[in-house]
Each structure stands twice: as structure tokens, then as C-alpha cells.
Design a protein around this nucleic acid. Sequence first.
DNA 1: GTCTATAGCGGGATAGAC
DNA 2: GTCTATCCCGCTATAGAC
Lengths: 189, 189
Amino acid sequence: MTTTRDLLVDTMKQLLWERGYDATSPNHVLERSGVGKGSFYHHFKSKKSLAIAAMEARADELITEFDTVIATTQGDWLDKVSAYLRMPRHALTGCRIGRIVQDPSVIDSELQAPLQRYFGALQQRLSALYTDARNEGKLSAGCQPEGLATATLSIVQGGFVYGRAVSQDQAVNDACESFIGLLASQRLN
Amino acid sequence: MTTTRDLLVDTMKQLLWERGYDATSPNHVLERSGVGKGSFYHHFKSKKSLAIAAMEARADELITEFDTVIATTQGDWLDKVSAYLRMPRHALTGCRIGRIVQDPSVIDSELQAPLQRYFGALQQRLSALYTDARNEGKLSAGCQPEGLATATLSIVQGGFVYGRAVSQDQAVNDACESFIGLLASQRLN
DNA sequence: GTCTATAGCGGGATAGAC
DNA sequence: GTCTATCCCGCTATAGAC
């Protein structure tokens, strides 16, 4: 059973993905969800508060997806990272959460918080993964784990941006695949 | 001597960088430039047409910057690409042109055209650079030049996105530096 | 909880005088 | 070429009835 509140959050998640924050209006949410204006402002005090709820939910969802891929993929660090980089992506729509970071309103610290949490969580996990690999002698000692983690997250975000700019839906995959090739050269044993 | 038209284009270039397309209104342009509304619509028939002019000018500027760095940097392919990746960047504001690709209105083909031209130009140049390097035996034969070019452009765009998301202005540089480290492993001779 | 009505504001543009 | 006045619309709510 889906409550009205949950319906609003789910609808906002979808619209934030499709149109970002600034370009999504309360009216869009109402039209798509079928909820009335009175209900909207009964459950949430503003567009911003609904967006925050939606982004927190999205962050949780994506962190869980990441953890699942890493945990269920057999093999060494490169196999796990490759599995993450090869997850199916909606290339032209963009990252379900990274898509909104350039919206002017998102400089606001409350709106930015879920983004920081999401990227911070993945950065930590990837850093730990690369650090362990290096300590076990399976990753070239010349690599800096934090930098590699930042690059890993950046290649995905940048692949989305580039792909949308040139309208080529295979661009994210190309960028990721090329990055995997470079990472493979750092694999030892 | 700067004409009113040029002043409008320059102001729009700046605002597209700071706020993107959808969040920039004609009134913003008028306030910052000191031009009147009548003049605006005398020189341009719409916000969109001014934005296209501004983006074309920006694309020209950035392509020229790229060509200059590549041409003036001494050394092999890795030195040239590294010099490009190490160019100073306004990390938290974003790429002067890539910054706007997620704006919903920019799915419009006329608005997208300058973006396609810019990224297409750099993609071609980088592909050629990597192809030549490989043919000369200076780049590992296992590398695919087009994929490497896509990854090179993506690492910059993604570094901007990641850096803004976590409010860390060194993130773009970290991502680029890490990518340079990976590229270095592909250098032969 | 949900509805309809209303409000104030800014966006994007047009009209016509100067 | 530039100015001011005006227009219609959608955004982000708020008010108060049901």
C-alpha cells in the first residue's frame, strides 16, 4: 500500500532525474502523480523539502545498488570495479543523482547534502577497495587509492555529460570501458 | 570598441557559465550588461538566439585554447595531453561549455549544436593524437584511440561534476592527475 | 487529508513612442 | 537603436472550506 507521501516522493525522484531540480515544478509533480495541491503542501512544506526527501531516498537506493554489485561479483578488485562500471545506464537521461549537481539552486547546502553523502559513500568504498588491493600486492604501488576512486566516479559522471552533449548513448560505456583497460594495466599477480 | 550586440553576447556567455541556460533570464542579462529591453530584442529575436550566439563564441574560444596548449607544449603525446588536463579550471563553477548540457531545454537541437561541435572537435583532435602516437609505436597497441579520447574528455567533465557535488575544488585536478598516471603506463619507448 | 480559490512574483516577449 | 509600458503565463506557495 502506497501512501500519498510515498507517491509524491517517488514522482519527485523520477522528475528530478528527467528534468533536474530547478526545472521541476510542484505542478509537474501534481500532474504526474494525480495528487492535489492541498495534499502536496499538507505532506511537505515546500518543493525543496520534497526534493530533499526524494534525493535522500535516491542516495540510499544507489548506495545499496553499488554495495550489491561489489558484494555479488566474484573475482579480484578489477572484476568488482569493472562490474560497477558496466552496470546498465540510461546514457542520455544522465546519472539518477549526479544529474542535478549543476542546477543553480543546488548550491544550497541542504539540497547538496544528499549528493555529498552519496558521492562520499562511494568514494570511501572505492578508496578502501583500491587500498586493500594495493596492500595485498594486487594493485601497482604507484597508484594512489583516493585519486583512483575520484577518477572512477568521475569517468562515469563525465561519460554521461559527454554522451548527452553529443547525443551518443554508447559514450558512457566507451568511457568506462576505456578506463577499465587502463586500470587493467595496474593489476599485479 | 564594443558594440551593444557584443556586450550582450559576452554577458550571456558569463551567465550561461554561472547559471546555465534555463536559469538565466533576459532580465539577468539586462541587469548585468546595463542594456535595455528594447535593445535586447532589437539585436536578438529571443533568449534562445542570444544563447546560441554565446555558445558558438564560447566553443570557438575553447577550441582555440585547446589547439594552443597542444601546439605550444613540447614533448610527446603524453606531455601534450597532460598539459591539457592540467590547464587551470574553475572547479566549482564547472566547464564553461559542458556545464549546461543537463539543462532540460538543451535537448533542443539548435541549442545542442554548439556543444556537439565543441566536443566533436576535441574528440577528433585527441583521437588523431592518440592514433599517431600508436602508429609511431609510442602508445601501447592495446589502446583504442577513440575510446581513450572519449575517456579523456569524460574525466574532465566528470571531475567537474564530482567536485561540485562534494564542494571540493581540487577534485577535477585529482581526477585528471590520476588519469595522467594511468595514461603514463601506456607510454612506450 | 484533500479540495478550490487566490495571491504575488518573475519569465519571455511585444508595441509603439522617441 | 533604445526606451517604457503592457501582456500573458507559470511558478511557489497560502487560505479556508469540506
